[in-house]
Simulated assay, not measured.
Amino acid sequence: MEPGGAEKAVSQLRRGVLEFCVLALLRDGERYGVEILRELGAVDALVTSEGTIYPLLSRLRKEHLVETVWRESPTGPPRRYYRLTTTGEKALADFSTEWRRFRDGVEYFLSPDGSVEE
Rank of each mutant, 00 (worst) to 15 (best):
E30W: 08
S73R: 06
S73F: 02
V34T: 14
L110H: 01
A45Q: 13
L25G: 09
A91S: 13
A24E: 15
V34D: 13
A91L: 02
R100G: 00
L46M: 09
T85R: 10
R14F: 04
T86W: 05
L25I: 07
S11F: 11
R15C: 00
S73K: 03
G88W: 06
A93T: 12
A42V: 00
P55K: 10
V43Y: 07
A24Y: 14
G29C: 06
D104F: 02
D104K: 04
D28W: 07
R15Y: 08
G105A: 08
L40F: 05
R38E: 13
T75A: 10
V69W: 00
F20M: 12
Y81L: 10
L60D: 03
T75D: 14
G88A: 05
T75R: 14
W99K: 10
L84W: 03
D28I: 00
R38I: 00
E107P: 00
G114T: 01
D113T: 06
W70A: 06
Y108I: 00
S111K: 06
F102N: 03
T75I: 09
L37D: 05
G29V: 06
P78A: 10
L37Y: 06
V66K: 06
L110T: 07
S58E: 11
C21M: 15
S96I: 04
K8G: 14
E98A: 13
L60P: 05
L92Y: 04
T86E: 15
G105L: 06
W70M: 12
T52F: 01
G114C: 01
S49H: 10
K90W: 08
S111P: 00
S96Q: 14
R101A: 12
S115M: 03
L26P: 08
R83N: 07
